[in-house]
Nucleic acid binder design. Structure first.
Length: 462
RNA sequence: UCCCGGGUAGCUCAGCUGGCAGAGCAGGUGGCUGUUAACCACCCUGUCGGGGGUUCGAGUCCCUCCCCGGGAGCCA
């Protein structure tokens, strides 16, 4: 008999139907004459109840059917007389693929802390919480592609290995083929990377943006969606050393277009999460009370607030709240300031625009006031910056001047400047940290709980 | 990297001014004909994070290192 997924049985099955189902036992409840097994196969948040009558030969298999065991069950689908489920399977046969010693299996029939589950990363996806999070992560990843593909954006694959820290976005991981036992040295005593695999020092990418720019200046609208690496010694609930980033880049677009795209994008993702992950979201809402379906519904409909950096600073200056860090035009907004704007002033996502040029990257377009740049950050309640973007500087002379001021060496970036020499055009884009998005939608407090194998300083199990 | 708070049974934690290491849950055994993290009874569970020191005596006090969490910085 063909194996059915639990999702399809619960939503497409009818009483009287013969079924075969495989999965992992969540709980077993035994009486003298019968037993109940709650089974999960990862296809859905919900569990399938198996009823094993004492007369069934399957009853003899019960001692092996402990929490965690992998089994196949065959039987007849019936309407359940009990509360809590509509359908259940009256089992006639059970095959145990692999048992799970109850004394040794770490996942007990009780609640566990997220911290403990992080220590058993290879098993935590068998829990309700992580099943929900990883299914939602998939829904969102698919929705990223759906959103851009529907708008004619081309998915481009920018390199993982790069030759320079052109953007200055944090510390980089070095990639090398050199033998650490006998590193070649130059006259200065430093490692001689000219003898390395690529003939120069190379790194894991910190952003695909610069490459995405030249692809946008040929294909029109493009986006990247792939892994990104930062060697920063960040120990927070919002940072990973390896994370996934989405970076759209649009030719012939300005900051307004960029903001509209970011807003439409986030709303679309919320809507898809609600449509396709309702059971998962409901579970997480009930379990942790850090996210709410109503909040996501509001977010997917109401317009985002928008404010310039200058106006935001004025708002903070007149705030009654005491801040630990100073508020002054020219200083970057601190976490506490961002939180005040999202949680107190606007009570929702807000887009802050036109930051002082000194605190933003060299490639952002200089505004006519020559003090600010056409940058935008989308700030979300609780987690802060979820999107950072800008219109790019397309004027060669202005860009070169900005690079000199910022101390960015031009040698490795001639190809980037070429885009301003040949057929330059206004263009804009942004970067979205995918895990921050998943965090925001699921309400998980720690970013290490929204990716299967989190990489962070001193953290690389599994 | 900095500032706080932690590390005691498989898990979550209590353990006061230093004096025989505890509870709940999980697990085991038995009972129970419709359970929902089932219920009832009984039973088992320890390198008190590692090392050093003070003391007649350290889970408890001191030093040091490691690990975890929260916050900050950096950022997405």
């Amino acid at each position: 008999m063909e194996r059915l997924m639990i999702k399809n049985i619960l939503y497409g099955g009818s009483p009287g139907q013969k079924v075969s189902v495989c999965g992992w036992v969540r709980t077993k409840r035994e009486s003298k004459g019968f037993a109940f097994i709650a089974l999960n196969d990862g296809s859905t948040q919900e569990l399938l109840q198996l009823v094993v009558p004492g007369a069934s030969p399957a009853f003899r298999e019960l001692p092996q059917c402990n929490t965690g065991a992998a089994i196949r069950a065959e039987g007849v689908l019936k309407e359940s007389p009990g509360k809590g489920q509509k359908l259940e399977v009256e089992v006639s046969g059970i095959e145990v693929f692999g048992g799970a010693d109850p004394a040794a299996y770490p996942l007990q029939k009780k609640g566990h802390t997220l911290e403990f589950l992080r220590e058993i990363g290879h098993l935590r996806s068998r829990t309700n919480t992580f099943g929900a999070v990883f299914r939602l992560r998939n829904i969102l990843a698919a929705a990223v592609h759906e959103f851009f593909q529907d708008r004619g954006f081309v998915w481009v694959h920018t390199p993982i290995i790069t030759a320079g820290d052109c953007e200055g976005a944090g510390e980089l991981f070095t990639v090398t083929g050199l033998d650490f036992g006998k590193l070649p040295r130059n006259n200065g005593g430093n490692v001689d990377f000219s003898q390395d695999f690529f003939g120069k020092r190379t790194f894991l990418t910190v952003s695909g943006q610069l490459e995405a720019e030249f692809l946008a200046m040929s294909l029109g609208n493009v986006y990247t969606f792939g892994p990104t690496f930062r060697a920063e010694n960040s120990n927070t609930s919002r940072h990973l050393s390896e994370f996934w980033m989405v970076e759209p880049e649009m030719a012939f677009a300005d900051l307004k277009d960029d903001m509209s795209l970011a807003e439409d994008f986030l709303k679309f993702l919320c809507r898809r999460a609600l449509e396709r992950g309702e059971h998962e979201l409901s579970f997480l809402e009930a379990q942790y009370k850090r996210t709410s379906l109503d909040e996501l519904r509001t977010l997917s409909e109401a317009p985002f607030s928008r404010i310039t950096y200058t106006a935001a600073v004025a708002e903070l200056e007149k705030a009654k709240e005491k801040f630990d860090f100073p508020v002054e035009w020219g200083l970057d907004l601190q976490s506490e300031h961002e939180r005040y704007l999202t949680d107190t002033v606007f009570r929702g996502p807000v887009i802050v625009t036109d930051y002082p040029k000194e605190i933003k990257a060299f490639y952002m377009k200089l505004n006519p006031d020559e003090k600010t740049v056409a940058a935008m950050d989308v700030l979300a309640p609780k987690i802060g910056e979820i999107i950072g973007g800008s219109q790019r500087e397309e004027r060669l002379d202005v860009l070169e001047a900005r690079m000199r001021q910022a101390g960015v060496p031009g040698e490795g970036l001639q190809w980037y400047l070429d885009l301003r020499r040949f057929g330059s055009a206004p263009h804009a884009g942004f970067g979205l940290g995918f895990e921050r998005l998943v965090q925001y939608i699921t309400g998980m407090a720690n970013i290490r709980d929204v990716i299967p194998c989190p990489r962070a300083p001193q953290t690389i199990g599994f």
